[in-house]
Amino acid sequence: MRRRWRDVPAAAALLAPSAALLGVFVVYPLARAILLGTRKCNVSGRVCKTVGWHQYVTVWRSAPFQNALGNTLRFVAMTVPIGLVLGVGLAVLADKQLRGIGVFRTIFSSTIASSVAVASLIWLVLLNPQIGLLSHLLKDAFPVVKKPGLLNDGGTAMWGVAISSIWAGLGLTFVIVTAALQSVPRELYESAFVDGAGAWRRFTNVTLPMLSPTLLFVAVVMTARAFQTYGEIDLLTGGGPNSAGRPTETIAYLIYGKSSKIRNDIGIQSATAVLLFVLLLVVSFIQFRVLERRVHYAE
């Protein structure tokens, strides 16, 4: 009993800074946003009144939210599987003791250095219909890149954003998968080799099962990030192109975007943000539950 209380003053002093900061800037905002989600404001955003908890249902069903939800899910489906496959491919390709392999590994992980803003601006230039290199290279296969431009066509704009996002995320996936590959015991490969398994069989029967916990982790992180996509949209499309509804407005962009309809309504914004939070929790939970059954954890 004495031991239990003796450390209290020291603990209070050591914990005070973090506890205060996390309390004021994470816990309080969450509670506040949940409450504000029951309020609705007028056009100027100055006068708000409480409409109640059913506003969460109203917001969920509203056309802008459903549109943003659909776009977000589409974006997740575009970026996560492709990003994962490319990242694993790069890691497997570079997982070999060759002279100069360090240079290739550095190159493959280099996109870690690009921020959301840097990656977006790089692809904004490359995809520019007049001067972009990629637009030029792809103009015969995909005329849309020139007219009106990949990011200027409502049907393809999200792909432009996805390309930028996949490229920017490649480095991180590569680094994590490479580290995981290096922890796979060599003997497993050797016994598979002795058993006459070819390269592909070794990949599917040894590499993939051993990588599966890492791949689960990476998939969950990538999905959560994709769900929160904001900067790419802000810089590449602004939720537009303007002509065709809001084909690239993600949930995060619906909350914060310059041209978002709900921008002045802190009540609706809060409700949308809380719905995004719940959605993230549910999706991560399902991913762990469903995928974990197929994951092989090494002892």
Partner: peptide, 17 residues
């Protein structure tokens, strides 16, 4: 648990704080 709270939720309120 604070790791689970997305920035989209907190920024809205922190901006006002």
């Amino acid at each position: 648990a604070t790791m689970l709270v997305p920035a989209e939720v907190t920024i809205l309120i922190n901006k006002r704080t």
